[in-house]
């Protein structure tokens, strides 16, 4: 199977990390951010996975789930719930924050403000559990997906306020996992979040501002 990736696509991190964590063997193909890979889609969507059967998967979360399924890890109610929450709540908030930071030049606190509510939600869930990861004792597809979405805005745990203790330590553990470190090295250059600029500028504004930023 071929995994199509483009420079600076924030979603590239999660599929690479998921491939690493699940041991999926993929052939990487680098394409431009506006590369038209999936034949039936009007708007280019990268990353995309082209299976040997001819099927295209264009949703990064479905690609991550597929890798874990191949490794024999079925999804549970809890992993489904985190992935759906990530797609409907976290991603729109992070896109707004990242756009504000990279394209509009907003700084630290202002950027975090846009995702404050979602960060607090993850922190609460981790606090109410006794396990180190979101769904249990070992990292699951949910941990990989959430970590990868947060990484471009957070980079390291030090920008998180002290009161989000549980989120800080989870994020630190995730950053140290080998598949996550490898994915960062493969997707990012020393330019840091600037990497995502060209990609974000090409996104239609409507999809970036679909969510009202959190006010608290």
């Amino acid at each position: 199977m071929r995994l199509y990736l483009s420079e600076g696509s924030p979603q590239g991190l999660k599929v690479l990390a998921a491939a690493g964590a699940s041991g999926a063997r993929v052939r990487l193909e680098r394409v431009p951010p506006d590369g038209h890979v999936v034949p039936f889609l009007t708007h280019p969507r990268v990353p995309a996975l082209h299976l040997d059967s001819g099927t295209f998967l264009f949703s990064p979360n479905a690609i991550c789930q597929y890798f874990f399924l191949l490794a024999g890890k079925e999804h549970t109610d809890l992993t489904s719930q985190w992935l759906e929450w990530e797609a409907t709540e976290l991603q729109p908030a992070v896109s707004t924050a990242l756009y504000g930071h990279v394209v509009q030049g907003k700084k630290g606190g202002e950027v975090l403000g846009a995702i404050r509510k979602t960060l607090a939600y993850i922190d609460q869930s981790l606090t109410s559990k006794t396990t180190p990861y979101l769904t249990g004792e070992a990292e699951s597809v949910a941990d990989i997906v959430l970590w990868a979405t947060l990484f471009p805005v957070l980079q390291d745990e030090f920008c998180l306020p002290d009161e989000l203790q549980a989120l800080r330590s989870w994020f630190r553990i995730m950053n140290l996992l080998e598949p996550c470190r490898n994915a960062v090295e493969s997707v990012l250059t020393p330019k840091g979040a600037e990497q995502f600029k060209a990609y974000l500028q090409k996104q239609p504004v409507s999809c970036l501002h679909s969510e009202k930023p959190a006010t608290n």
């Binding site: 299976l51 059967s53 099927t55 998967l57 264009f58 949703s59 979360n61 479905a62 690609i63 789930q65 597929y66 399924l69 191949l70 999804h75 489904s80 992935l83 759906e84 797609a87 409907t88 409507s206 679909s210």
Partner: peptide, 23 residues
Amino acid sequence: AEEKAVVQQWLEYRVTQIALPCT
């Protein structure tokens, strides 16, 4: 596994693309 991923993909498409007010 492939069919499961395809089903999940369209469920995600359903909640992210069609649930929002569409122009």
